Computed example of a mutant assay.
Amino acid sequence: MQTQITEMFGLRVYTDKAVFIGNVDDVVLDVDQKKIASLAIGELNPEIGEVKGYAGLQIPFRIVKSIGDIVIVRHIPGIFKSPAKEA
């Protein structure tokens, strides 16, 4: 997986279970290790869980599965709740 950091800004972020999380606002770098530490996500989907009072979320880069037209991250059930299904 190779891409320019600036190309990630604004990309929509989804889990591999098709749950929309938000958009990439920034990239957090680990300068000592010379790698990306996490993605800062803004415009959070209010349906993924309790995000009240938070302007964003940091997703560790180690759970990123793919970057292209969108970013796909590994789905973690305790963190990224699936939207409520209509009855």
Results as ranks from 00 to 15, higher is better:
G68W: 00
H75M: 01
K65D: 04
A55V: 09
R62S: 14
P83Y: 06
P46L: 04
E47K: 14
I76A: 07
I59W: 03
K52V: 14
I48F: 08
D69K: 13
R62I: 10
E50P: 08
P46T: 06
P60T: 13
G49Y: 10
H75S: 02
R74F: 05
P60W: 10
P83A: 11
V64F: 07
I63T: 11
G56M: 03
I63Q: 02
A40D: 05
S66A: 13
L57N: 04
V73T: 08
A37V: 02
V51D: 03
I70T: 14
V51K: 11
K35I: 06
I67T: 11
L44V: 07
V71C: 07
I70F: 06
A84R: 14
G42T: 07
K65G: 01
A84H: 12
D69G: 14
G68H: 02
P77D: 08
P46R: 13
E47D: 15
A84Y: 10
S82N: 08
H75E: 06
A40T: 09
E43Y: 07
S38Y: 08
P77N: 08
K65F: 02
Y54V: 07
G68K: 07
I76G: 01
A84C: 05
I70Q: 07
I59L: 13
H75W: 15
V64K: 03
I59D: 01
P46A: 05
P77S: 06
K81I: 10
L44S: 08
I63F: 03
Y54H: 14
V71F: 03
I41G: 00
I59P: 01
G78N: 11
G56L: 01
K81H: 15
I79P: 00
N45F: 09
G42N: 08
E50V: 10
I59G: 01
L57E: 04
G42M: 01
E43I: 02
I76C: 03
I76H: 11
F80I: 11
S38I: 06
D69V: 05
G53K: 07
I67F: 11
A84W: 09
A84Q: 12
G49W: 15
L39F: 10
S38T: 06
K65R: 12
I72C: 00
A55R: 09
V51R: 09
L39G: 05
E43W: 01
R74V: 09
V73I: 15
P83C: 07
I41Y: 03
E47L: 15
R62H: 14
A37F: 08
L44Y: 09
A55Y: 09
K65P: 00
D69A: 13
F61R: 01
G49C: 11
I76P: 00
Y54C: 08
N45W: 11
E47A: 15
I63D: 00
K65H: 07
G49T: 13
Y54Q: 12
R74E: 15
K52W: 05
A37L: 10
D69Y: 03
E43M: 04
A84L: 15
A84G: 10
I48G: 04
